[in-house]
Amino acid sequence: MANCRALRECTDQMILIQKMHMKERGFDDIGYNFLVGGDGTVYEGRGWGVIGAHTKGNNHDSLGVALMGNFNNDTPCTEALSSIKQLLRSGVSLGYLHPEFILLGHRDLGNTQCPGEKLYASLPHLRNLT
């Protein structure tokens, strides 16, 4: 997934991801519940309360949030991490996430480098919602 930093660029990336999920993977729509652009904009994929198609075998009890970009070398920006934290807070306050949810990276559940070294290193900071 390519990095994006501006609304138009991130919107175009979102459309490419949706097309790939539908045409190549045969999904009804984008697989993630939410995506976050490099500018911090949150995009609704399947949304709250809908089973995603993001981590085979673990979709029934999880929420799929993707940060658009490749974070093996690039560090996720503060705006994007802040948006993810706010999204998780909203999920708790709306009752879609348990207050003591477990935050995992895709690599914790499958043989992948996702979400990349730099983003994976940020996950502990996202667990603290205060």
Rank of each mutant, 00 (worst) to 15 (best):
L87N: 04
L97Y: 09
L81F: 10
C77P: 13
N70S: 14
N73Y: 13
G52E: 01
L87W: 09
A66T: 11
N58D: 09
V65G: 06
N70H: 12
N70I: 05
G105S: 15
L63R: 00
N58E: 10
T41S: 10
N59Q: 08
G57I: 11
L94M: 09
E44I: 09
I51H: 11
F101L: 03
L63S: 02
G38T: 05
F101R: 00
P76W: 04
P76L: 05
A53R: 12
V65L: 13
F101N: 01
G52H: 03
F101W: 03
I102V: 13
P99C: 02
I102F: 00
S83E: 05
D74F: 02
K85T: 13
T75D: 08
G38K: 07
N59L: 09
N59Y: 08
P76S: 01
G57F: 08
T55D: 14
G69P: 13
H98M: 05
G105K: 14
L81H: 05
L67A: 09
L104R: 06
L94E: 07
C77V: 15
E79Q: 13
K85S: 15
G38M: 07
N72R: 04
G91P: 08
L87A: 04
G37S: 05
L63I: 15
H60Y: 02
I51M: 15
L63F: 05
G38C: 07
I84T: 00
